[in-house]
């Protein structure tokens, strides 16, 4: 079923919307949650929470890209769950993602940085716009979908080393890009 029709079902408050969403995007949402949590039951729970959140958000929201809308919800829910779980369990792969991103930030919290946080996504969008398509896909797959390096290499038919080098350079570029615009993370 097309996304617009599924969204229409949400607007009609038809419960079929949930089953259609699960049939079309369930696997994607589970994989996003799995990349962060590395636990199948937690990922499944995140998936169900996503459907509930989507049910509550539509209407009034009418998402432009339904897969990205659902993915963002799953990502946020999974991140909250990861924080909840982190004391007891560790997901080495997701820890790696965060460790990589630490290269771009100072680790300190300040009033300025909290203010900047609201505008940061826009700047990152601008940064991504200037990247080559392949580099952008690698960056988004790693830091949005939290895909393992091996998975990205396999998907794009390139070596793992190349993915690592591209990510390394892109993080450097992102840091410089933000610093040039007066954003000190």
């Amino acid at each position: 079923m097309e996304d617009s029709k599924i969204i229409e079902l949400y607007w009609q408050r038809s419960e079929q919307a949930i089953s259609e969403t699960a049939g079309k995007y369930g696997r994607l949402l589970r994989s996003i949650a799995m990349n962060i949590l590395n636990n199948f039951s937690d990922a499944e729970e995140c998936e169900n929470d996503t459907y509930a959140a989507a049910w509550n958000a539509i209407p009034p929201t009418r998402p432009n890209v339904f897969s990205a809308f659902l993915g963002k919800i799953t990502r946020n829910i999974a991140l909250n769950r990861w924080e909840y779980n982190r004391a007891a369990r560790r997901n080495r792969e997701f820890d790696l993602v965060l460790e990589e991103l630490e290269e771009c930030v100072s680790g300190r919290e300040s009033v300025e940085s909290l203010f900047e946080a609201g505008q940061l996504a826009e700047l990152i969008n601008e940064f991504l716009k200037g990247l080559k398509r392949e580099t952008r896909v690698i960056f988004v797959r790693r830091y949005w979908y939290s895909d393992p390096v091996k998975e990205i290499a396999s998907r794009l038919r390139i070596s793992e080393s190349k993915v690592k080098v591209v990510l390394f350079r892109t993080r450097e570029q992102l840091k410089n890009f933000l610093e040039e615009r007066g954003v000190c993370l």
Binding site: C104, A121, V140, W144
Partner: peptide, 29 residues
Amino acid sequence: MTAKELFREIGGISDVYVEEAERAKRSLA
């Protein structure tokens, strides 16, 4: 800012880029 916060901010990027990355499907070959 912490890495986790940056990760959340990256979550707010344009849907276009998220969709573009999603469409970069794995090739069997």
